[in-house]
Design a protein around this nucleic acid. Structure first.
Lengths: 165, 165
DNA sequence: TTTTCCATGTAACTCGTTACATGATTTC
DNA sequence: GAAATCATGTAACGAGTTACATGGAAAA
């Protein structure tokens, strides 16, 4: 959850926003990069509110369901600072499901082995192409940096696969 | 869960084993690579038993708690084959928590930014050294292949960090 | 007028971890 | 006699997803 919290707190750094707005931003600008679902954002925002890291105000527009506008509090800013540093050094995420499969790859025959690895290669190529095609957002240098990181890691896998094949 | 199932089914491929034995093997040979906890293994084995993918037999040795010896069934073998192929192509695990932090890295001042990134670099170096030092197990080519993959990915991050700094 | 967008949620479920509990046996 | 090892679990919790539910407003 802490990871999602960091994401949300960060999005509230620059401006107060309501839940839908945040989800919208994520979907339109970060989909394919961040995989947080709508309901998760809503309930994480609730939690942050309960813990006092964000403040919530209702905003009525016409006859629609009231918007819940969230604003970062001082404690929220402090939590952000802490989580940012924590995740910057935290070494997690290197475990990849594919590695479990690789452990047992010699239970496949040569031809099939090559076939599935090639399939993986094609999938990675597609993912790289998709991510590389997303335009820079002007949201900040950091986002492009983060996407650059992801691309670098995917290219590394690609290289590894090619070498194996 | 499917990922853990693949791991356990795979360990039962070569021979029937009881829970403690499996946990022991993982701890002694795969710790630092696979992060599955003991209770998780026990309950996953239970599930596999209920679903008929493994068969369980009790084995009494002296006065101790009976060993539960698990054996792969035909359906279990089929599940293994399916999961193996599935995870071989599945593109997941590229999301890394650090990337969320990277998105917001420009909220740190130059000096601190460099400091934390250097810390990460040191942590990665340590992790690489630890993993590279684990001896080959003779368990199968696959395990070394999987560890090689992990090492490759960690070195890729290291490279990326160095380039950034 | 039908579809899409706006804006929120809840309930049920899965997955996994943590901490706890038990009790015999072997080793120091 | 104390500590580590053998061998199993359960209960409670946390995090997240899925599917479902609502209902007005704008656009096609």
């Amino acid at each position: 959850m802490e990871e999602r919290k960091l994401l949300l707190l960060g999005l509230l750094l620059s401006q107060s926003q309501h839940g839908y707005q945040i989800n919208d931003f994520i979907e339109k600008n970060l989909s394919g990069f961040v995989g947080m679902k709508r309901s998760t954002a809503y309930s994480t925002l609730d939690n942050l509110c309960e813990s006092g890291h964000v403040r919530m105000e209702l905003e009525q527009v016409g006859n629609r369901p009231a918007r819940k506008v969230y604003t970062l509090t001082d404690e929220g800013r402090r939590l952000f600072d802490q989580l940012l540093r924590e995740y910057l050094v935290k070494l997690e995420g290197f475990e990849m499901p594919v590695e479990i499969a690789l452990m047992y790859i010699d239970s496949l025959e040569e031809t099939e082995r090559v076939g599935w690895l090639s399939k993986r290669l094609a999938a990675i190529d597609a993912a790289i192409a998709a991510l590389a095609a997303t335009p820079p957002h002007g949201f900040g240098v950091g986002v492009d940096l983060a996407i650059g990181h992801r691309l670098h890691m995917m290219r590394a896998e690609r290289e590894w696969l090619l070498n194996l094949l």
